[in-house]
Design a protein around this nucleic acid. Structure first.
Length: 628
RNA sequence: GGUUCCGUAGCUCAGUUGGAUAGAGCAACAGCCUUCUAAGCUGUGGGCCGCGCGUUCGAAUCGCGCCGGAAUCACCA
């Protein structure tokens, strides 16, 4: 039961400190990155001008602000102590050296302490021409790092259908897995299904008592929803009994503990643990209904797993590990035989690992499954995509594993994400404010359909084709809406206002893609062949250069997003790219451009932008349509 | 109370090695379709970046202290 709901964590503690700027290496890249060129140049300049050694990593760079001319800017303040001159003077001296001695530096200008550098057209054009030849631009070679990372996500309970909270979890888990793959890691996606426990028994009992033999087939209802209904029925009947008992004079606490229904549910759990044939059969039947429903939801959402674990199989594991810890005196036993880890020295509390009756708890199971996974998959790292409400749990998990002496304990990362809040506050099933995952997806697709029909651009398409486009747009809107937000932050979702289709949204980006596809189709019809060859003496407008620079940034965006486990970085980058392209599209004609070199350059820009949109969106688990 | 996280425009969000005048979208208002898809583009208005102190050439960003919000601190998972 990992996913109750909610937030953040201590990602930062694990976040790798970046040293200097990233050097982008690709098999077919002939030259160094802009950053490296400038850093090396400045380092050389300072040596030549002032006789001091400055490490290339220490040269501070930033993108040149749009209101100044230049592509990249060196901050000169840190060098003033070396130059013993004023900022402007220092900047001018370094700038002059760069312009004189560094190949791709075309022009320099100094504003206050900032040295703005213009990189030559040749550099950008040759970058573009190598980018267009790279089929997997931005992605590292698959499994090239030699690291195996396990990503656990989703982790639902089998007593009710998936809701909005799971949606964020699933989208994040899936997207982060994609990102890590794109960074060259081997990734194994796993799901730990909570298929046992008292809450499952509640649904089972309610079905037994009130279900009258109803099944998903007989009712036409999705299995997970049907089971969820009985969970609600249990709760209702249970409350009724509590009320009656209180009316008879019992205290609320007594009533809660002694209501017949809860006693029966507990009895059922005992029978389940004793492997009572009848209970197990019921449990298997109802779980299979739920799995059927989940599969449908996962499929619609577009997520999947390499391996599914069931808590019914893992909940006993970890006991041996705890026993060993006890023998090694890392853990201790209380007089009632319960086993504890004392974490007070680390600023935390004491944590129970085995109950007095010897049975295990949530933590025990996680200790066990972690060890099992390391052995089974030789995982170098394990990432748990779980809401921030469980920050404490994972802090303890990592700490206990460390104390037990597992060298890989520090490789456990809790990818803690924030809760999705509704305008009314938290989702509460009892108050009927839960946003169901299936309903939500259907609504989004319905909205896409209504909007599309209103615009009437798909007239003449078959129903089949239209349906698929509505699905792509509706889900694109939902997924983008959720993924563009920094994972660790709580976010607000307003079901009434639904999700926008204009502005910084999935459909906006998809729309940009369809525009590009439309151009490419038309070019094809006109018999225009887009060549990979970028003419080196073609005029490049500022807007075009702007686009090239954005395109150039893509690989480092993927790296950053992978390092920080943040799909939001990719989402916001793709939006920026789409926006930039739309401006370009608005200002320039492409197909009607008469100069064929310029036309070819613009077609290349369109083509590369289109494939980055497609691949970036794919990292987010979002499809792009050919038309909309 | 302890621990962790969050606080940026009316609303939803960007802003990650500390850098120049803090950016988008939505909403509001004003424009742009005989020209490659107007789900687009352009413009206007809108901000003590929660508050204070400190570090420094420079702080939305780092440190400390407050204020406000969230989560958690079970022999539940």
């Amino acid at each position: 039961m990992r996913l109750l709901w909610v937030i953040t964590a201590f990602l930062c503690a694990f976040r790798k400190k970046r040293v200097g700027l990233r050097f982008i290496l690709r098999s077919n890249q002939q030259h160094m990155s802009v950053e490296s060129i400038v850093q090396k140049g400045v380092s050389d300049a300072i040596k030549a001008l002032y006789g001091a050694d400055v490490n290339e990593d220490q040269v501070q760079l930033q993108e040149t602000r749009k209101d100044f001319t230049g592509d990249i800017t060196v901050v000169t303040f840190p060098f003033l102590k070396i130059s013993k001159k004023k900022p402007v003077e220092t900047g001018e001296e370094i700038g002059a050296y760069l312009k004189e001695n560094v190949t791709y530096v075309d022009n320099v200008s100094v504003v206050q302490g900032f040295l703005n550098i213009e990189i030559s057209r040749d550099y950008w054009l040759s970058s573009l021409s190598s980018i267009i030849r790279d089929e997997n631009y931005g992605y590292a070679k698959p499994e090239s790092t030699g690291h195996t990372i396990m990503v656990e996500y989703s982790s639902p309970n089998t007593n009710k259908p998936l809701h909005l909270g799971h949606v964020r979890n699933n989208l994040l888990g899936y997207s982060v897995s994609n990102l890590l793959k794109a960074c060259g890691h081997r990734v194994i996606m796993v799901n730990l299904v909570n298929d046992r426990g008292i809450h499952i028994c509640k649904s089972m009992l309610a079905w037994q008592k009130f279900g009258e033999g109803i099944t998903p087939e007989s009712s036409g209802k999705k299995g997970d929803h049907l089971v969820g209904d009985f969970y609600v029925i249990f709760d209702k009947e249970y409350k009724k009994q509590i009320k009656e008992l209180i009316a008879e004079g019992k205290t609320e606490e007594e009533a809660t503990k002694t209501a017949p229904l809860i006693l029966e549910a507990q009895e059922m759990l005992r029978k389940w643990e004793a492997k009572d044939a009848e209970v197990v059969a019921l449990w298997e039947m109802m779980n299979s209904w739920v799995y059927g429903g989940f599969d449908e939801t996962y499929k619609k959402m577009g997520v999947g797993f390499d391996r599914i674990y069931h808590e019914s199989q893992t909940y006993l594991s970890g006991k041996a590990i705890v026993q060993k810890g006890l023998e090694d005196k890392i853990l201790y036993q209380r007089p009632d035989n319960s086993v504890w880890a004392d974490l007070t020295g680390d600023g935390l509390d004491e944590k129970l690992l085995l109950r007095s009756d010897g049975t295990s708890v949530y933590m025990t199971q996680d200790l066990g499954t972690a060890c099992q996974r390391v052995e089974e998959y030789k995982a170098d790292q394990m990432i748990y995509v779980v809401g921030n409400e469980q920050n404490y749990h994972f802090q303890v998990l990592s700490l206990v594993l460390q104390k037990l002496g597992y060298s890989w304990a520090s490789q456990i990362k809790h990818m803690s994400y924030g809760m999705v809040e509704l305008p009314s506050g938290k989702m509460k099933s009892r108050e009927g404010t839960v946003v169901d995952a299936d309903d939500l997806m259907d609504e989004m697709i319905g909205t896409a359909e209504a909007m599309s029909n209103e615009l009437g651009k798909l007239d003449g398409y078959t129903e089949e084709e239209k349906k698929n486009i509505f699905r792509i747009i509706g889900l694109g809107a939902l997924k983008y809406f959720i993924l563009k937000v920094d994972p660790k932050k709580n976010m607000l979702f307003d079901p009434k206002e639904s999700v926008d289709f204009n502005g910084n949204t999935g459909p906006f980006i998809q729309y940009t893609y369809t525009r590009i596809r439309s151009i490419m189709r038309k070019a094809d019809e006109m018999g225009i062949v887009v060549t990979d060859e970028v003419s080196s003496d073609v005029q490049v407008d500022n807007k075009e250069k702007q686009l090239i620079k954005l395109i150039y940034r893509y690989p480092s965006v993927i790296q950053d997003a992978g390092d920080t486990l943040s799909p939001a970085l990719v989402a916001n980058y793709v939006y920026e790219l789409a926006k930039e392209f739309n401006q370009f599209y608005h200002d320039f004609t492409i197909l009607k451009e008469e100069n064929t070199d310029i036309r070819n350059l613009r077609l290349i820009l369109a083509k590369v932008t289109g494939s980055i949109i497609q691949s970036g969106m794919a990292l987010l688990g979002i499809e792009v349509p050919e038309r909309m």
